[in-house]
């Protein structure tokens, strides 16, 4: 363990310099959200639960045909989640409203990836296989993926699914926001174009926010005053307006802080430019040098004899 005097001062110098260099550059966490992304506004007061969007999504993404046909509406009796063969699903809720004939009024909720503005999945991905694009999509590049599934752990909407039965080349599966389609001029997501009642509006997120606010303002009796996705986890590209409180129809309450903020702040304040490991290295080197002649070897002789 020869740590010579010269080596020791070498480490000390590098340590000092690097700590000084970093102190000047440390900065607060900044959102990496694109300024003018596309989005979709889902108006739950309009949705009639026809499952046409599910079918369109299945078509445009060339997903495997489902066991039960898309015309089968009895499937709405069970609560479903998107999975590795289905990027979007519609669930039916009875939040308690009744019509004039005392019948419960259903609310239908379409679920898919929210394409968060500061996505947890993107921050988490070990290899940068997931990225947030300028046009708003959260895009998956399978060629970088190692299948660690940390994105699934991180996603607050529990969206990414996994091909658990593919032994060698499984993929993370989630709504693509029809990346290829909307990258073309005038292109729209499959689900938005098909909707017969225009429950899904595609457009720039900023425009959609204005539209949502307008609808809520003009029909205050029909809507609750909240746009789900405006502030949740720092904002999402997909947003919802509804006539019933979101907690009653399967939406979870989420903080308005972007999910990656805390972990990225911790990570970068500790490890940017590797300042803390370098400093620790220097300190340990110092300790090692200071104790280099700590001759308790005699002690061991005594102890050894006593054994």
């Amino acid at each position: 363990m020869e740590l010579s005097r010269r080596n020791f001062f070498k480490i000390l110098g590098v340590t000092g310099a690097s700590v000084v260099a970093v102190k000047g550059k440390a900065r607060a966490w900044e959102s990496k959200a694109p300024p003018d992304p596309f989005g979709c506004l889902v108006d739950l007061t309009r949705c009639i639960g026809c499952r046409k969007c599910e079918q369109a999504c299945n078509d445009v993404n060339a997903l495997p045909k489902p066991d039960r046909s898309f015309d089968d509406l009895t499937i709405l009796d069970t609560k479903r989640r998107p999975d590795e063969k289905t990027f979007t699903i519609v669930n039916r809720y009875y939040p308690g409203k009744i019509d004039e004939r005392d019948q419960l009024i259903p609310t239908f909720v379409k679920i898919q990836c929210m394409h968060c503005q500061d996505p947890a999945c993107v921050s988490a991905c070990i290899a940068g296989a997931l990225t947030k694009k300028e046009n708003g999509t959260v895009h998956y590049n399978v060629s970088k993926c190692i299948g660690c599934r940390y994105c699934m752990v991180a996603c607050p909407f529990e969206i990414p699914a996994y091909e658990y039965f593919n032994p060698i080349t499984p993929k993370v599966m989630k709504c693509t926001f029809c990346f290829d389609r909307i990258s073309k001029e005038g292109g729209q997501p499959g689900c938005a174009t098909i909707c017969p009642v225009e429950a899904i509006t595609f457009g720039k997120r900023n425009t959609l926010l204005k539209l949502a606010k307008k609808r809520i303002k003009e029909n205050p009796a029909d809507y609750i005053d909240q746009i789900y996705g405006e502030n949740e986890v720092g904002g999402t590209s997909w947003m919802y307006i509804s006539g019933v409180p979101f907690e009653k129809i399967g939406f979870n309450k989420l903080p308005s802080e972007p999910m990656p903020k805390l972990s990225e702040t911790v990570q970068h304040s500790l490890f940017s430019y590797l300042w803390s490991p370098i400093a620790l290295y220097g300190i340990l080197g110092g300790i090692m040098w200071a104790f280099r002649n700590n001759g308790d070897n005699t002690e061991i002789e005594n102890n050894g004899g006593a054994r």
Partner: peptide
């Protein structure tokens, strides 16, 4: 393919 934001990385 570094993602220095990722704790797992």
């Amino acid at each position: 393919n570094w993602n220095t934001n990722s704790v797992l990385f």
